[in-house]
Design a protein around this nucleic acid. Structure first.
Lengths: 150, 150
DNA sequence: GTATGTGCAAAGGTTTTGCCCCAAC
DNA sequence: GTTGGGGCAAAACCTTTGCACATAC
């Protein structure tokens, strides 16, 4: 887990990157970026909207979506679709996979570099050039498994 | 790939399973089930609706969704969320992974039993009891890669 | 100053729900 | 005959879009 200072720096770097690529750095984008960076977990567009409005009360949801689209294009955030009808967003920070509890909704990240590599090779055999991946395993977490057996 | 006879039998078995669990077997459910079984690829709710209406013209979209929900609960079909705002459905038939072309939308299935097993073990270390998984690799297929380099 | 970004409101598309009738058991 | 399921229409939901105004550069 990175400390606050590192994250502030990261937001700064990303802002610079945005500017370099001809995009403007607005307070809205800064706020959304920071919220995603500071949050360890995963956020829905609506949650980001809610949090960002504490700083920018007149922020609109469409700006959140537009900003997320932009950040997705730049591969700075990634979009997950875990359950129900909404997306979750998270800062792009290396390859990782998700464990999702279908009972309580908890999401745990884990790493499996070997599988990532294997997947990449297999994809290559099908002529695919991989740019991203999404691995989600569904099941019951420890707590929910215990709760269910009672 | 299973032949037609095997699939008809499968639909029959599933119908029996439905009945056993206290659900009724209606022509609508039969039709939807058969369509999903017969289709090798992935279908959206709307495509299923379109196909099923050839047999049951008065079928409604809500019935398609309700049936899919039921089949999902019984783990007879699985739901994918690949891109944009829609879901795709497919018959639950063993573990497999998806390659998705972000350019043309093509979806290719592939197998990686070793990764599946590894994932299961890793999940166990986090206390998770896995019931399902979704592995999607995004990238460019051969055709789109060529097209882009021109 | 100019082009990009924003807020607002309205549209868009997909999925869900309520209600009454119908049909599987 | 009961009770779960279906059709229809409307609602709900999240996301996208159009447009005029604001603002980062």
């Amino acid at each position: 887990m990175k400390d606050r200072k590192a994250k502030q720096q990261e937001v700064g770097q990303i802002a610079a990157q945005l500017r370099q690529q001809g995009n403007r750095v607005t307070p809205q984008r800064r706020a959304i970026l920071r919220i995603i960076q500071e949050q360890e977990g995963h956020l829905s567009a609506d949650e980001i909207y809610y949090l960002a409005r504490r700083e920018i009360p007149r922020l609109s949801l469409s700006t959140v979506y537009r900003t997320l689209d932009l950040l997705k294009d730049l591969h700075l955030v990634s979009e997950l679709h875990l359950a129900g009808n909404h997306y979750l967003y998270e800062a792009q920070s290396g390859e990782h996979q998700h464990l999702v509890c279908v009972s309580c909704g908890k999401v745990v990240e884990f790493q499996c570099p070997h599988c990532s590599e294997t997947h990449r090779q297999l994809a290559g055999r099908h002529g695919f050039k991989i740019t991203g991946s999404r691995v989600e395993l569904f099941g019951y977490c420890q707590e929910c498994t215990s709760a269910r057996s009672n």
